[in-house]
């Protein structure tokens, strides 16, 4: 990214530690630790004389509970234009040495003008700011604010990138259960030079915050350039269809394993959905793959179904079940078990 300087630009130049005022360094280090740990930032007592103390009044607060049930609250206490800029300038100077020259540019309320894609912000979305880092490990972070549900806005922006030729990287092997988790899935630029990740969460007040990370692929290696993980030699995977996930769920783990005569695969995910909706979504795909349902049933917390599959002379039996966690109403596990059937 090539920042365009203007009179409001802040120059973020790293000074050696001995050039820094030790009180400022101590204050910033403490602030960094507290902020990064997701803790409330409290005003610092005047041990650092050049920092203006401000009334300990909560001026703004944002609380997020993610789909993984992690609550994070950010509280901003005090400050004004001058101290805010001072804080930003110090915050983005890393307190440890880098190997190469690094430049960081903050765009307050704006995007860099040389992004490798075009974004048309949906109604109600605004740009909070951008952080552009150049050097050995260049990266760009775009921070957007939305008045509505963050997940829906992530989907809108993902569609825009897909329309511009961005693609998902090739998935690794052993993917009976496909994940459509918008929260995690990266996108690769058409020339594979950039990897873009979109993250969105809805805060307790209903507003959304979206973060778009743009990494240069070259120094890191990336799913955009790496070959897919070697495929499993498991013969059952040729029988089991690839199952796409419902929209608006977030997959956080999976497991799959095969012994000689059976195969089991499962995913765990969160989402605001129902057992009935999940069951309908997955069973339709099994039927479309030619599986014959031999039985089924469901309650509000579990759905199960039995299936038979014929491949040439070989018969297989499968069970498919979805269970809602007893610990959390929006947490689910879907499991497929497949085994060779005995001749009758």
């Amino acid at each position: 990214m090539n920042p365009k300087p203007n009179r409001n630009d802040l120059q973020l130049t790293r000074q050696s530690p001995i050039q820094r005022n030790p009180f400022t360094l101590a204050w910033c280090t403490l602030a960094l630790l507290l902020f990064s740990a997701g803790c409330t930032i409290m005003p610092i007592q005047p041990t650092a004389p050049q920092v203006n103390t401000t009334p300990a009044t909560v001026t703004e607060q944002a609380t997020v509970t993610s789909t993984q049930e992690i609550t994070e609250t950010v509280t901003i206490v005090g400050g004004n234009e001058e101290t805010l800029r001072q804080f930003l300038r110090q915050y983005f100077v890393q307190p440890f040495a880098s190997n190469n020259e690094t430049n960081t540019t903050l765009y307050i309320g704006a995007l860099p003008d040389d992004l490798p894609f075009n974004l048309e912000l949906p109604d109600g979305m605004t740009v909070a700011g951008s952080v552009v880092t150049t050097g050995e490990f260049p990266s760009t972070q775009l921070i957007l604010a939305a008045q509505q549900n963050a997940v829906e806005n992530v989907n809108v922006l993902r569609e825009q990138l897909l329309d511009q030729g961005y693609t998902r990287p090739t998935q690794s092997g052993n993917e009976i259960f496909q994940s459509q988790s918008n929260e995690y899935a990266p996108l690769c630029s058409p020339d594979d030079r950039f990897m873009v990740m979109l993250n969105g969460v809805t805060m307790e007040d209903g507003a959304g915050t979206l973060h778009i990370y743009l990494n240069n692929v070259e120094p890191f290696g990336s799913p955009c350039t790496m070959e897919a993980t070697q495929s499993s030699s498991n013969p059952f995977e040729a029988i089991a269809p690839t199952l796409t996930a419902p929209a608006n769920i977030s997959v956080y783990s999976s497991g799959a394993g095969s012994s000689g005569d059976s195969f089991e695969a499962s995913i765990s995910f969160t989402g605001e959905t129902t057992i009935a909706a999940l069951s309908e979504h997955y069973e339709a795909q099994l039927q479309a793959a030619g599986w014959q349902q031999s039985g089924a049933g469901q309650t509000e917390d579990v759905a199960w179904s039995g299936w038979t599959i014929t491949e040439g002379d070989q018969q297989y039996a499968a069970t498919f079940y979805i269970v809602r966690s007893a610990r959390s109403s929006d947490r689910f596990q879907a499991t497929m078990r497949l085994e060779t059937a005995l001749s009758r």
């Binding site: 630790l33 307190p95 783990s253 799959a256 394993g257 995913i267 596990q333």
Partner: peptide, 26 residues
């Protein structure tokens, strides 16, 4: 325990999605 597989599996793959966050000390 979630996403379990049999103990006699020939091969199993366990996958999880994490969020990594850089801390101020690197």
């Amino acid at each position: 325990v979630i996403n379990a597989v049999p103990g006699d599996s020939i091969e199993a793959r366990f996958t999880t999605e994490l969020q990594a966050k850089q801390r101020p000390d690197g």
